[in-house]
Design a binder for these strands. Structure first.
Lengths: 345, 345
DNA sequence: CTGAAAGCGCTTACAG
DNA sequence: CTGAAAGCGCTTACAG
């Protein structure tokens, strides 16, 4: 564990001042081209890497952004969403040599406290807000703090933070029209947590479209995204009289669970029941039949969110119009597979 | 964005020196009980939170540990393993007020470079090494660096780093004995990446046990853990003559894929084919039939790994015997479910 | 028990 | 273009 090399060492070796070394290293004016070249060569040779803490203290920037997740190990693990999002975020951060710090919290209050502490400590320069709820108190809290943040989800209005979201309504309409075209009239939906914003958006979109198409019924049951509750809801739907001929699931895990329940009840998919899933992980292609599902590029979404956060941090203002960005995800498309067909005659 | 309050502000308000404030805040001797109480009260009232960078620079510790993952967005997302591990790690870190910094890399060289930089920058105080391979070059590299690290996996020998691993051999034996008792003689295995250490351990354990039990055959196909390759391998196994009556999968995603292939080929599970999965996520309970699988508590594993890393960082030496810890995971147990039964007569 | 000072390793005005 | 110095916000010997 040899002592680290500092700019003082380089300055001594090059016979210049520490200031000159700093200017050379950071590509600033203030040193001649020849001195700069010499300093850079020496720095490289000595394997110099600047100390983060010292740099942060001087420029009062952490070169790090944070993400706090209010999730349990189980719900984190089961959903590919977060890892894909983080993977996209990372791609942008690495390019800008920012670090990512991750914290898992148990309650909203803990989460708010994390933001307060992070910002007070200057441990992060900005954060991502995920799992946006209806009337989410975190948005105002973080804005009041003055902590740069990007809202990963929406639509949100009258917020002092840039937000990025997918259009949730159009896919709902697409799915319903697709099932309607196949001939389905009694459609059910196993939906996600009602407190989440995008669940509400989908609720509304389905209701409107169903009315417009004149569908017989669109029963909705809200659960928590887990396979257990998805299975339970499916069992309930399929054992009532006038059962649906098609069920839409708000994520893929519940759809897989629903398919198993149909098998268990001896219902043939897709002959007697059609199934559509949101969030097309490879899970949907592993079942038999493969599940018709809606694909979105979550990694690309993460890249966009990170781009906006870095812009916000570096310029003090988000990228143009970032305050209300809708990610028109070119990839939000329906992939019909073996789990959908016309309803039984 | 009001100016942050620093110890200088508190010192001024309390009418003492900055040194006294520091002593009081850190619970060190050097201030009277009354002064300490007064300082603490003022600090709390002013909402003081110490600046991380300043503290790090003084004590030359980052209060952060790092984890670099060489995985793609897809393989990260599909496997609950990492999120569960991270969730456990977080629990320990939060308790010790350490942060976690996460980086996703593309190649081993990139990963090594990340460790070098992190340590030179003093951005982390230690790291976790995951996805341990056979003759993994990272172990020596990190040890040479002097960077405190915990090897998450094993067994590894002659390494200068503490390692923590589950016993992989015993469960292999248990599974094989279970299938043998049911009457199976032709068993196949769809295994994980051969370059990974634990895959090799399992290879050996199955071979030994199969020989000891006098099993007819244990065919193994190594793939990459994805459902696609798991399905492909299964198709290959089931369409050859003398096909196996039971298949063991090294993770749950491949097992689910394998089940779908059996359905597709019109094979009844478990009547004509038994299936056993490793890594019991809720996936295994969502299929029909539910999959017999091996459960381990990954979150607890993460907690243990983090405990050891923090001990290593704070004392310079790992916890007693940490150099070769085997986590005798009480939870590594086989859960027989609907996917296993005696072979067809 | 307390205060004044030096130091951690950078950056950045400010003079020459 | 270059050097000497102050400052970021802490911690920690070192004198009183």
């Amino acid at each position: 564990m040899a002592r680290r090399v500092t700019i003082a060492d380089i300055a001594a070796a090059a016979g210049v001042s520490k200031g000159a070394v700093s200017y050379a290293l950071n590509g600033r004016p203030g040193v001649s081209a020849t001195t700069r070249t010499k300093i850079l060569a020496i720095a490289a040779e000595m394997g110099f890497v600047p100390n983060r803490a010292a740099r942060s203290l001087s420029v009062s920037s952490a070169q790090t952004v944070g993400i706090a997740l209010r999730r349990t190990a189980r719900t984190l693990g089961i959903e590919p969403y977060f890892m894909e999002l983080i993977s996209g975020i990372e791609a942008t951060l690495s390019a800008g040599s920012y670090g990512l710090t991750l914290q898992i919290v148990g309650t909203v209050d803990e989460e708010l406290e994390v933001y307060r502490r992070w910002w007070a400590e200057r441990r992060v320069d900005g954060v991502f807000l995920c799992d946006i709820g209806i009337n989410d108190q975190r948005l105002d809290y973080v804005a009041d703090l003055g902590l740069p943040a990007v809202v990963v989800g929406g639509p949100v209005e009258n917020v002092r933070l840039p937000a990025v979201w997918h259009d949730n309504a159009a896919p709902c309409q697409e799915i319903l029209e697709y099932l309607h075209t196949l001939g389905h009239q009694r459609i059910a939906r196993v939906a996600g947590l009602p407190r989440l914003l995008h669940t509400g958006v989908r609720d509304t979109a389905y209701a409107h479209t169903a009315a417009a198409l004149g569908l017989e019924s669109v029963t909705t049951i809200h659960v928590d995204y887990t396979g257990e509750q998805g299975a339970q809801a499916t069992r309930r739907l399929l054992t009532t009289s006038g059962r649906p001929t098609a069920i839409i699931y708000d994520n893929d895990v519940m759809a897989v669970a629903g398919l198993a329940v149909a098998h268990e009840l001896g219902l043939l998919v897709p002959q007697q029941l059609s199934i559509v899933a949101w969030d097309d992980s490879s899970l949907c292609r592993l079942t038999h039949p493969a599940l018709t599902s809606l694909t979105r590029d979550i990694t690309a979404y993460g890249i966009t969110c990170a781009d906006i956060l870095l812009t916000l941090i570096n310029t003090g203002t988000p990228a143009a119009d970032a305050r209300s960005i809708t990610v028109e995800s070119q990839s939000a498309q329906l992939f019909p597979r073996g789990s959908t067909a016309p309803p039984p005659a």
